[in-house]
Design a protein around this nucleic acid. Sequence first.
RNA 1: GCAGGGGUGGCAGAGCCUGGCCAAAUGCGACGGGCUUAGGACCCGUUUCCUUUGUGGAUGCGAGAGUUCAAAUCUCUCCCCCUGCACCA
Length: 954
Amino acid sequence: MMNYGSMERRWQEEWEKAKIFEGDPNNKNAYMVTAAYPYVNSPQHIGHMRTFGTADVLARYKRMRGYNVLYPMAFHATGTPILAFAKRIKNKDPDLIKELKLFHIPDEDIAKMTDPLYLANYFAREIERGMHLAGFGIDWRRKFISIEPRYSKFIEWQFGILNAGKRLTQGSHPVGWCPNENNAVGMHDTKHDVEPEIDKETSIKFAVDGTDAFMLCTTYRPETIFGVTNLFVDVNAKYVLCEIGGERYYISKAAADNLKYQMKMEVLEEHDGKELLSRSAINPANGTKVPILPGYFVKEDIGTGVVMSVPAHAPFDYAALERLRASNYPIPEIRPIKVIDVEVGHSIGSKDAKPIFHPDIPALAYLEVLGTNVNSVDDALEFATKLEYREEAHSGRMIVPGYEGMSEPEAREKVRADLISAKKGFEIYVLTNSPVYCRCGFKVAVKLVENQWFLNYGDRAWKDAAKKAFVAMRILPEKSRKAFESALDWIDLRAVVRAQGLGTRFPLDNDKIIESLSDSTIYMALYTISHLIKELDPEKLKPEFFDYVFLSKGDISEVAKSTGIDYEIVKKAKDSFEYWYTYTSRHSGPDLIFNHLTMYAYNHVAIFPDKYWPKQIVVNGSVLSEGEKMSKSLGNIVPLIDAMQSHGVDPLRFVIIAGADLFSDSEFSYDAVNGVKERLEYLYNAVSGLESMGSEELKHIDYWLYSKLNRKIESVTESMELLELRAASTEMLYNSILELKKYFARGGNNGMVVKEYLSASALLLSPIAPHFAEELWHMLGNDNFASTERWPESDQSMISDKVESEEDLVDKVIADARQVSEMVKRKGGKEPAKLKFIVAQDWKRVLYNIVAQQKAPGKVIDWLKAGEIKEMEQYSGQVDIGTEIEYITGISKKRAELRPVALTHEEEMELLSEAGTYMAGVLGCEVSVESESESKSEKAKRALPGKPSIEAVF
RNA sequence: GCAGGGGUGGCAGAGCCUGGCCAAAUGCGACGGGCUUAGGACCCGUUUCCUUUGUGGAUGCGAGAGUUCAAAUCUCUCCCCCUGCACCA
């Protein structure tokens, strides 16, 4: 049994002693691998291993390919989450403390985590320790944290350049807002960590008949305004009359409370909802007078608390009206007005639901098609609503004059624009997932922040430059390129500062902090010099220093003089940047495509000369735990360090990093880990088996193993180049085991061959399972590091299709023999004592190959009759034409699948004879091989090339 | 809604770009056998259905249609699932 723990520690120490991750500056081929730096507000779980590990595998692979590789790491602490974390500790948040306990964090450390800096440094240390134990080849001399002074100097320099390049702009912006704390709230500031989702809705002004005030309705479907028959209010709620922008509106009191953060509003009067029922309102789209009615489903805090009723197209509206009628509420005659024509139920496609074409009242038709009615529960109405909205959006056509024939989404945009430009409506922001509560307990509202600073990612020229960078960039997996393309099209203004949080102060407004994604777009460049400026007084890190190092601006002596930094350091910094930053690979998870990774490219093109633009981006999937997404609420988070201790680092690396292809999620499961362990163990044990092996002349199976090995080297190399780690790992581990097993089963026993196979395997395994690879490498008698060895080269001359296909043939024969043997046993009740393999004659091969190529048996028969097939002449005495034709007819049915065979009769005889012992062992009975021409068996003529006839003998 | 990804055998998951050697790798599970005092581990075999003294056939890769001598693979339509939609790390 292998002891993973001691093996890992041993090699980690050895690597450290040899400083193999610090690179060789004399090597001209530099390659830098960076992974999105970890946020230091949590301990690491196994999910964190994916990105860092993938980067590590690439770094290790590139080292073996002869590059001088730099894989640095730093820590992210910018923003509010750390502050929120510290606050929760102060409040003794039981959930958080429970989570920390899961990671074995001592009470005294938890107690100190009320200090944000303490907790940031604590987790930074822990994360570093975890990465170290995971065997990541990181050059830790370069680490930094995003809230230290020299980092801020760097970011200030960056924003100086962005500002000079006119990348910044100001405007207003909606954010989730806690009125109690007077602060913007993001996901980590809310109860249950929900992100406040903000969306725009159209509010439409319905004049209250006989007054100058309006009922203000919000709707997602402004195009249905032509179908409005009435308005609904919540009779149990309070409503207010308020003044917004010089006009007066009735909205619910709850809505007023929400909306006052995004518009100037004065509340004038308060009313009961009931009072509004006596009024009627004017539809601004067509001047129709509509009554105001009680709507049982209206919620005072959604939108404005006033709903426009479109019974033809909204099941809830239809149902509410019908229920009012049934309850004898005095309502006027209301006829639903259809505005969209639709085939109701066409998308359901089930046998019990028959579509209803062109109904007069689609909303009713949807209820019918779903087998429900106006009195059903809200969930059923909700379902009908969703179906109706979907189908109408998808295939509905407007029938309203002026919008006729338009699709619904098209009409929606147009109607909205028309209403707004005619001042009959305006847009408001709503929380779509309302209610969201701040951790302090208050309900989150939407606030319009004035004078917000933005980075203008919508700028045409900038966008085009970023796109250009992507065209030249390598993206792995390539299929995520499309996501980047749409991210580039979509990205626009991005708010760049926040009122609070840790981080760098915004140079243009010192009260604000640069937001955390915006201060993390070019930090990879800092790695190239961070170890050189570590000891410097941050005040010396003036813009001219960075200008010189990164942009070659200015004169080195002057820079040294004005900053007070040693000439040598400035020079080294510049050289180091230029050396490392030319070939870079950036690693991250897919969630960062739409922000960090795109901004990363944008900022590089805005700041650096194109020589230093990103060269490669690698996006990897996440990690699932036993089939489920790891989450705090599910409680299935597996702490990284625990997992490494109990399973061993390398098996874990295999499962998490290489267990799925880049794009998909990998699955952490004990079964998978054990599977890897068993296989590593097999290789480990194979080494000790070497002693007892011989070293005779190479046999067929030795050539086979060589062929497999060299093919493997080739295919693993291809996979590694594209970071197709799943494919690489299947090939290098799983298939190696199968091949070795087969080799031994086939009587392979050549120590030299197996040793070569294992040595190459050790090297191939090294990037993914570095500790194990070193162990194996040393057991095989080497005293240097597998990690610094050259990646194996495949020897093309050892790859043989012929040898491999011969082995395949043996396997197929065995499979066929099994079937025969099975069948015989079933029929006769006893197993055959012997199986006779009868090998097809050579003339059959000639015809077989012709048919396989021509795929036209008729033609071949014609040629045969006409004596046009030269190769057949030599067999003229052996076989008559009738037999030949019968044979061709026999194989003609399968002509599409026939492949030419290479083996001659004699070779096939030899192959099967040589494999005789093996087959006998596998089949559990005697076997013999004979030639078709010499066989007396009546089955003999059934023999086909590559598919001997089989006779069971008892 | 928009954008991106996906739907393959009991499960997981390859294959799809570059159509044929694909009843479909590999792993797990299940079943049978070996080993074992027994279990685990390990080894061998089976694992869509039908058929057969013979190595065969049918159906089949979300649904439907099309292209082709030939489709899991190409085209179109539809259905379903996952992720993202921002100022938040």
